[in-house]
Structure formats: structure tokens, C-alpha cells
């Protein structure tokens, strides 16, 4: 009886091994970068979250779960989380809807013109966040800022975007909407990939513009939409630079009840102003978990709402 040699799935030919080594060689810059700048710092941060490390003393006594136990009792965390979620819930849908609208407009005009507008829409994205924050101090000022002056032209008295706790977050949403160029470009690319025949067929079937958008365009760009929603959600939760420019430093206590205290701002304050690195690390990990949960929920929902042409 001839013994049958089972082919081992892990047995690689010389060519396979060579291919693998070459692949690893080309991937190594990223792998090294990931390990050094992402994986190790993350693990280090996780370790620090169980200590009361102070960079001033260099001491990192282990404190077990104390940092995590403190989080629910810290009223600033509740405030910061509420502000951050409030902003996210306002910003993500608005930025998505506005981006779809502007991308649709771009899709309807000629290539040359759309090129100009694509550049124009994208320009704010390459503006430094600090410059954006500084600019919007002037735009949102009351009563003589650009926005309220514009509203006054229509007989509307604008609110105090920078000083009124009730209007502060909507004001920040307006500021951040200025930088949706990246989202517009992604959705514009998706819109251009929607086959014209499908629209023609729907039109022949009697579908109006809204019905074509609802039943043809939207499903076909749902993959891109899903992507930008996730990216914008994460970006919104991590809001920092622009608001720190406006409300950090001297104006830190400017708005009573901490209306401008966003989560990463508080994390930064704990880490680099009061030097409670252990607690700041715990806050960072809580944020990581929150982002993970929200993203997981979005992925779960995507199975119902996102259409992938090939699967």
C-alpha cells in the first residue's frame, strides 16, 4: 500500500518563500513604524493607565484600577463626554448631508468647472487647524463677526456663538463644516461611479429625481457613505485643535459650566497641565473603547444599510 503523503498547507515552495520575504521587505517600513509608533506606545499607555505616573518625578507607582474607578466619579468627564457626543451627533449628519449635496452639485457640472470647485472645497482641509480656529474667532464674533453680519443682512439677529453656552457647540459645528472638503471629494468620486444606465432605466420607469436618488444613487454610494460616516465620527469624537485654539489657554474658564470642554481637551489638560499621566492614559483608553464600540455598532448596522456590488 502506497503511503499517501499529505500535502502540508504550510509547506512553501522556494518561490513562495522568496515572494513572502520580498513582501515583508517592502512592508517592513510600515511594520516598523506601526510597532514603534503605534503598538509599543499603546501598550505603554495601557501600562501607565494602571499607575499614577508623573513625568515630573519619573515615579510610576502601580495603583491598580484606581484611575479607571475615578473616571465615573469625575464630573468633568461626564461634562466632556456630553459635550463631545452633542457635537458628534450634530456634526456627523450635517457634514454628511451637506457633503452629499455639494458632491451632487459637483457631479452635475462639467469636469473643468468641477475641478475648480473640488480644489476650492478641499482647500480648508489643508489649512492648519490653529489657523482655522483663529479665523473663526473673527467669523463667529458677536455682533460684528462675518456670520452674524451676514445674518443681519437678512434681518436675523445672530446669537453669541463664542460666549453663549447654548450656542457654542453649534458654532463649533459651523466651524468644522468649513472643512468637509475631504468628505465631498470621496462622495464625489462615488457619485461618478454610479452607472448612468441605471438612472436612465429608472427614469424610463417613471422615477422622479428624488426617487432616483433614493433608490439608485444612495444604495450605490452607500459604501463610501459608510466610510465617511465612520471617519467623521472618529474625527468628531477626537475634536481638539480648533477648539483648543479658541477656548484653551487664557479662555480656559471662559465659558462657565465648561460648555467648551471636549473630551480630548480634558485629556490634554490632565496629561500636560496637571501631569496626571496615569489618569490621562486611562481617559485615552476609555476614548479608545468608546470609539471602538461606536465603530462596531456602525459596522453592524452597515450590514443592513450598505450595498456592496460584489457581495
Amino acid at each position: 500500500m502506497t503511503a499517501i503523503r499529505r500535502a502540508s498547507p504550510t509547506r512553501w515552495s522556494r518561490e513562495d518563500r522568496s515572494t513572502f520575504l520580498w513582501a515583508m521587505l517592502f512592508l517592513s517600513p510600515w511594520i516598523i513604524g506601526f510597532v514603534v509608533f503605534t503598538a509599543i506606545p499603546m501598550l505603554w499607555s495601557l501600562f501607565l493607565s494602571f499607575t499614577s505616573y508623573s513625568p515630573l518625578t519619573g515615579n510610576a507607582p502601580l495603583v491598580g484600577l484606581a484611575n479607571y474607578q475615578r473616571i465615573p466619579t469625575d464630573p468633568k468627564v461626564t461634562t466632556a463626554l456630553w459635550n463631545t457626543m452633542y457635537f458628534t451627533v450634530l456634526f456627523v449628519p450635517l457634514s454628511t448631508i451637506l457633503s452629499i449635496f455639494l458632491a451632487s452639485l459637483l457631479n452635475r457640472i462639467g469636469n473643468r468647472t468641477s475641478g475648480f470647485f473640488r480644489t476650492a472645497f478641499y482647500l480648508p482641509n489643508i489649512t492648519p487647524a490653529v489657523a482655522t480656529g483663529t479665523l473663526f474667532i473673527l467669523v463667529l464674533a458677536n455682533p460684528d463677526g462675518l456670520l452674524n453680519s451676514f445674518l443681519r443682512f437678512f434681518g436675523i439677529t445672530g446669537p453669541s456663538w463664542l460666549n453663549d453656552p447654548a450656542w457654542l457647540k453649534p458654532g463649533i459645528v459651523i466651524m468644522m463644516l468649513w472643512s468637509i472638503g475631504g468628505t465631498i471629494v470621496i462622495l464625489f468620486a462615488a457619485l461618478r461611479n454610479v452607472p448612468a444606465e441605471l438612472h436612465e432605466a429608472a427614469e424610463i420607469d417613471g422615477a422622479n429625481t428624488f426617487q432616483r436618488f433614493r433608490n439608485v444613487t444612495l444604495p450605490l454610494i452607500s459604501g463610501a457613505l459608510f466610510f465617511v460616516i465612520i471617519i467623521n465620527t472618529i474625527a468628531a469624537i477626537q475634536l481638539f485643535s480648533e477648539v483648543y485654539t479658541i477656548f484653551g489657554g487664557q479662555r480656559q474658564g471662559a465659558v462657565g459650566n465648561d460648555a467648551a470642554l471636549f473630551y480630548v481637551m480634558y485629556l490634554f489638560r490632565e496629561a500636560f497641565e496637571t501631569f496626571r499621566m496615569g489618569y490621562a492614559s486611562a481617559l485615552a483608553w476609555l476614548l479608545f473603547v468608546i470609539v471602538g464600540i461606536i465603530t462596531a455598532i456602525q459596522f453592524r448596522l452597515s450590514k443592513r444599510f450598505v450595498y456592496y456590488e460584489n457581495g
Binding site: A235, F240, G249
Partner: peptide, 22 residues
């Protein structure tokens, strides 16, 4: 560590150096 942990997502809005507004 802090930046990577908290900001490892694709934060297109967080470029630049924070500066104190005043």
C-alpha cells in the same frame, strides 16, 4: 502614547499645533 491611543483614528481635523486662544 496618549496621542496614538486617543487619536489613532483618521482625524482629518486635528492637524496643527494647538495654541492658546486668548
Amino acid at each position: 502614547s496618549l496621542l496614538v491611543t486617543a487619536c489613532s483614528g483618521n482625524n482629518s481635523s486635528s492637524s496643527g499645533t494647538p495654541a492658546a486662544g486668548g
